[in-house]
Structures are given as C-alpha cells and as structure tokens.
Amino acid sequence: MCVNIEVRRSPGVTVPVRELPLAPASTTSCCGIGVDGGLTREDAERSAALLKAVADPVRLRLLSAIRATDAGEACVCDLTDLVGLAQPTVSHHLKVLTEAGLLERERRGTWAWFRLVPSRLADVRGIFD
C-alpha cells in the first residue's frame, strides 16, 4: 500500500511529489529498529538509578578502594583520608551507594564499615550485556 505525498505551492495548486510505501503494521520503526527489544521503561529507570549512583568520581573511588581491601570492606574513617573529603561528605556518598544496593553497611562501635554487594556490581556490568 502506498500513500501520495503532495506539496501545495499556492492556494488551489497541488503538486504530487512521490508515492511512498506505507510501513506494514509491525513492531519495526521506519528505520528498521525493532521497538520490542531493549529495556522496558521500568528496567531503564532502575538501571538509570543504579548508574546515577556510580556516576560520580568520588563514589567510583570509594567503590574501588573498598574492593581493593584484603577483607573486602572498609571503615568510613579510613575512606575520608583516601578521597580527601570531610567525614560527612564521605558518609553522604556512602549512603547513596548503600541506598543503591552497591554497599552494605555495618555499625561497629562508633564507626560504620562498608562492604561491596557483588551481585549489584554484576547488575551494573549487566546493563550493557
């Protein structure tokens, strides 16, 4: 099936330009990109929230530092010197990472200790698989 595309040059004068085939009713857009594949809206929103949590240089350094420890965990008191920021600022970044599920927090006395959640790191890697 085709559709006529016309251009009006002046009132009452129509010039046919060309006939274009109509795309069949399918899940393919005009450029051949399938619209059924890829992330759902919900998956994209979850992935964006996860990526937003790691899309900060300080947070990436914190994750990397915790991952590099022998025990796989670190105290907030050790992380402040590493990134050269005040404890409240580092705690804020760690809270964002914890809320995103990338870190687990454990209170030991007056200090908080953080360890990675490997499955969430795998989720970050899996977004682009």
Results as ranks from 00 to 15, higher is better:
Ala65Asp: 06
Ser10Glu: 14
Thr69Pro: 01
Thr27Tyr: 09
Ser29Ile: 03
Val58Phe: 06
Val7Arg: 15
Leu50Glu: 00
Ala71Lys: 13
Val7Cys: 10
Pro57Ile: 10
Glu42Arg: 15
Arg8Cys: 13
Leu50Ser: 00
Ala55Cys: 05
Pro11Ser: 12
Glu45Leu: 15
Arg18Ala: 10
Cys31Gln: 09
Val15Met: 08
Ser29Trp: 07
Gly32Tyr: 00
Ser64Leu: 15
Ser26Lys: 01
Pro16Gly: 01
Ser10Pro: 03
Val15His: 09
Asn4Gly: 06
Glu73His: 08
Ala49His: 07
Pro57Trp: 05
Met1Gly: 08
Ile33Met: 14
Arg61Asn: 10
Pro11Arg: 15
Val7Glu: 13
Arg8Gly: 12
Ala71Asp: 11
Thr14Asn: 14
Cys75Arg: 12
Leu63Tyr: 02
Pro24Lys: 12
Val15Lys: 12
Ala44Met: 10
Pro57Ala: 07
Val35Gln: 15
Gly34Val: 00
Cys75Leu: 08
Ser10His: 11
Ala48Val: 11
Ala55Asp: 13
Ser29Lys: 11
Leu39Pro: 02
Val76Trp: 01
Ala74Phe: 03
Leu39Asp: 03
Arg46Asp: 02
Arg46Cys: 00
Leu39Thr: 02
Val15Cys: 06
Val58Ala: 06
Cys31Ile: 11
Val7Lys: 15
Cys75Trp: 03
Ile66Lys: 00
Ser10Met: 11
Ile66Phe: 02
Thr14Ala: 12
Asn4Ala: 13
Gly12Ala: 14
Pro57Val: 11
Thr40Glu: 01
Ser47His: 05
Gly34Phe: 02
Ala55Tyr: 06
Glu45Gly: 03
Cys2Thr: 10
Arg46Trp: 01
Leu20Cys: 04
Leu20Met: 05
Lys52Leu: 11
Arg41Cys: 09
Ala44Lys: 13
Ala23Met: 12
Cys75Phe: 07
Ala44Thr: 08
Thr27Leu: 08
Cys31His: 10
Gly38Cys: 00
Ala65Phe: 02
Pro57Arg: 12
Leu60Val: 14
Val3Met: 07
Gly12Ile: 04
Val3Ala: 08
Pro11His: 14
Cys30Tyr: 12
Leu60Trp: 05
Ala53Trp: 00
Pro57Glu: 10
Leu39Met: 07
Leu60Gln: 15
Ala65Met: 04
Ala74Lys: 01
Pro11Thr: 11
Val3Asn: 06
Ala48Trp: 13
Gly72Pro: 04
Glu42Ser: 13
Pro21Gly: 06
Val3Asp: 07
Lys52Ile: 07
Thr27Phe: 11
Leu60Pro: 02
Thr40Ser: 09
Glu42Thr: 14
Ala44Gly: 07
Ala49Leu: 10
Arg8Thr: 15
Arg46Gln: 04
Arg18Val: 05
Arg9Asn: 13
Arg46Ala: 05
Arg67Cys: 10
Glu6His: 14
Glu42Trp: 10
Val17Met: 11
Cys30Thr: 11
Gly34Thr: 00
Glu73Gly: 04
Ile5Lys: 09
Arg41Pro: 07
Pro16Ser: 04
Ser64Val: 10
Leu63Thr: 01
Arg61Val: 12
Asp43Ser: 08
Leu62Glu: 03
Glu45Ala: 13
Leu39Lys: 05
Leu51Ala: 03
Ala74Thr: 01
Asn4Cys: 07
Ala65Glu: 11
Ala71Ser: 14
Ile5Phe: 08
Ala55Ile: 02
Pro24Cys: 05
Leu63Ala: 01
Ala68Lys: 11
Gly72Val: 02
Glu19Asn: 03
